[in-house]
Design a protein around this nucleic acid. Structure first.
Length: 270
DNA sequence: CCGTTGCCCTGCCAGC
DNA sequence: TGCTGGCAGGGCAACG
């Protein structure tokens, strides 16, 4: 389930692999997976385009093209972007394939078909409802503390809201709340300033550490180069039902908040 | 604006 | 062995 660190890892790998390549043709096998603005033919528009740059915004992989158009890919839970060579076996659930002129190809696969590859026109405000990047200078402790005030929603739901902060998913929300010692169900506005400051630093720290370890591989997540992440080996709470808390030894519990499984320590998260 | 709910999907696994 | 039901989850629409 790619969140910010996994998408960052995928984008970095893709940048190395496809920057400068020219798209020769595009094969769309499941039309809903490839979205273009009204009147624009996805496959036709991409043919002949050169990849200028690959980046990331929130949980989206951005493939910037030389014309100024951009491919914005959302992987949701099971989506994958894989660079493949001629003759290499195709990944199951491949719905869109970009063929490059050097005969390599970029496959967009997603067994659950929740992901989307979207063609965005130059200047289109596709990301207008996304909050700040948590690892950028625009995300500050003061700004974060200010955002919490007066909010009644559980802090866990707040962290998952992409309009507030962009890129945090279920794994890193659980991990950051554990690191900060804050109960996930607590109303966001009830968190004291010192605790909010701890949470701010926990969010930044957990995301940065996860990027350094190439993300978290639960189930069979791999990046664009087919490599697994390493952060699953250092998870404190996510998926660790019944195991002892690394801080106090109390067993990790699982509850549901904002329709998401939530793992936390009843003793040391308050 | 705010907060909550339901839906989209399929693979996996526990339980019978 | 074979079935069933629950769970996993991000983003978006809809509702009060």
């Amino acid at each position: 389930m790619p969140e910010l660190p996994e998408v960052e890892t995928i984008a970095r790998g893709l940048a190395r692999a496809v920057t400068g390549k020219t798209i020769e043709s595009v094969e769309i096998r499941l039309p809903k997976m490839a979205v273009a603005p009204p009147g624009v033919d996805f496959a036709r528009a991409l043919a002949g385009e050169r990849v200028a740059e690959v980046g990331r915004r929130a949980k989206y992989v951005l493939i910037r093209l030389e014309s100024g158009r951009m491919l914005v890919t959302s992987l949701r839970m099971t989506g994958r972007l894989l660079v493949q060579r001629p003759g290499e076996t195709e990944f199951p659930g491949t719905h869109v394939v970009l063929f490059y002129t050097d005969e390599t190809r970029l496959s967009f696969a997603d067994v659950r078909t929740f992901g989307r590859m979207r063609l965005v026109e130059p200047g289109e405000a596709w990301d207008k409802s996304l909050g700040p990047e948590p690892l950028s200078a625009s995300f500050t402790p003061e700004g974060f503390i200010g955002m919490l005030s007066g909010r009644t929603t559980p802090i866990k739901a707040f962290l998952l809201d992409q309009q507030r902060i962009a890129g945090i998913g279920n794994i890193y929300a659980c991990e950051a709340l554990w690191a900060a010692g804050i109960k996930p169900g607590r109303p966001a506005g009830s968190i004291t300033k010192p605790a909010a400051r701890r949470l701010y630093h926990a969010v930044v720290d957990v995301l940065q550490r996860a990027i350094d370890m190439r993300g978290t591989s639960v189930d069979d997540y791999v990046d664009a180069e087919g490599l697994r992440g390493g952060f699953q080996n250092v998870l404190a709470v996510y998926g660790r039902l019944g195991q002892p808390c690394a801080r106090c030894g109390s067993p990790i519990v699982r509850t549901v908040i904002a329709q998401r499984g939530t793992w936390w320590c009843r003793r040391c998260q308050r």
